[in-house]
Design a protein around this nucleic acid. Sequence first.
RNA 1: GGCCUUGUGGUCAAGCGGUUAAGACGGCGCCCUCUCACGGCGCAAUCCCGGGUUCGAUUCCCGGCAAGGUCACCA
Length: 546
Amino acid sequence: MDYRKLAERLLPGEYPALTEYEERYPLRALGKGAEVTRLAPSPTGFIHLGNLFVAIANERIAHRSGGVMYLRIEDTDLKRKVDGAVEAVKNALRYFDVRFDEGAEIEGAENAYGPYYQRERAEIYRAYAKDLISRGLAYPCFCTEEELSALREKQTAEKKITGYYGEYAVCRNLTEEQIYAALDAGKPFVVRLRSQGDATRKLNFHDEIKGDIVVTENDQDVVILKSDGIPTYHFAHAIDDHLMRTTLVIRGEEWLASLPIHLELFDALGFRRPKYGHNCSLMKQDGETRRKLSKRKDPELSLEFYRKEGYFPRAVKVYMLTLLNSNFEEWYRKNPEKPLEEFPFSVGKMGKSGALFDLSKLNDISADELSRLSAEETFDFLKDWADEFGSEEQKGYYSDREYALRVLNLCMGTSGKKRRKDFRTAKQATESMAYFFGGAVRTDDYRVDRETRIAILTGFAESYDVSDDAQTWFSKVKALAGSLGFAAETKDYKANPEAYRGNVSDVAEVLRIAVTGRANTPDLWTIMQILGEEETRSRLVAAKEE
RNA sequence: GGCCUUGUGGUCAAGCGGUUAAGACGGCGCCCUCUCACGGCGCAAUCCCGGGUUCGAUUCCCGGCAAGGUCACCA
């Protein structure tokens, strides 16, 4: 059969010689060991934690090695395309401090290896497909979707491997007459790879993350060009990663199964293949079993979740890093002040098995990160969050900067070593400070009877003097406790609890709940100082009425 | 079901022929001039199972089992 003629019929017209592409996209002039990596999402408008996870790995590897990280948009499936999705991807990644050197919508970059939208690369793919056809390595297939699914059912019923291969690949052996007849009849067609593989043969492959693995040769005549002339993922991947000169592909392990296809495609196209690292996916415990984080069931999969909850972006990144490189956590403990970029991230340290996503660990990291910020930095972070996601009332919390700063200094502590870690997220922090801003809601109940409560509240109000220092203030609370039959000293109470109605802490608790609505707060004296005498007294009075 | 991958405390994990099997999160207990938080001290909890190889296996080999992934003109 005249394959050249067939190629011309299938993809008519002039296409650049393939050598032109090689010249247009030369090997990158980078230092030794420099890796070129990429993130290649499809623009579905939903960027998730898995994307961030793999993006951070790619970004670290590229930049640690003096290489390049670029953004490519895999928009070959128009059904999945959503407007504004690319902006969303870019914004989300920027928020978590993942920076691209080039790619789709990356301003200020040379972007010499573009276009970075696959739809805009249609001509390139067709040129390569045409070459494959003319070399007899690809052929048109006229099978309909119905025929294909019927085939699949038949294969399943007969317990055969499903797919288009060997004897099942009917269009693979069409005669010249049959092909042209179908073409003349205007039948739509896809272009399939004429696989040279043998599924009974095994291949040893070195994966940068998984190590040495065994894969089965591909023998599927996979579709490379869909009936609309747009490539499938597999074909686009081979061409793009070759022409964009990607050296290392870190991607989710769901791709491992199609690796044999990619290997064959690189060979058929005469490309040197990149290194691959298949990264495990983030899992979630679901009853007895664990599963991949799911879009429908798990809000924490969405990156938007972390912004809404007000997680400190760096905390999310730190957590991703601890999951990504097993020695990161130790390094970070030793070097809390160093920029994250200095951590010697390595592909080799990436875990082989899927990690369960642990929100409580993230909370711990987030609290830790937040405790390192100054009051001013905390203020800026909280205010930004409130402006975007807070209620009207919460937005108001941060309108008086000086006042808010005093509150933050109390709630977070000022001495470097002994910082409080009360704040996990901007949302939780804002809610926990509500009582400073009049938004108090009683969340804890008094544990003493009404009569005792009134006695404590009244007694305290009588001796309360806003100008007392902390020491004096507390000695008055102690005195009050003693006069009401409570132990003034904790030591005394512990030595002989039977002798008292309770401890001074019980008295303090009544005051604390009266003023803040909560049984647990930072130092009460300071809270009263911040609130001021008038507000404090009015809350004490109000508490008597309950 | 076929193929591939993975399997150390509840979670993340170090260890890769001989260890009291690190550390972190979480849990629990105690201490820390009012609670909480911080901090300190301590406790409980692990090598999937069965065969080998070996003087000796968590570490090596084989076989199970379990979990995950994948079998599209989606990526």
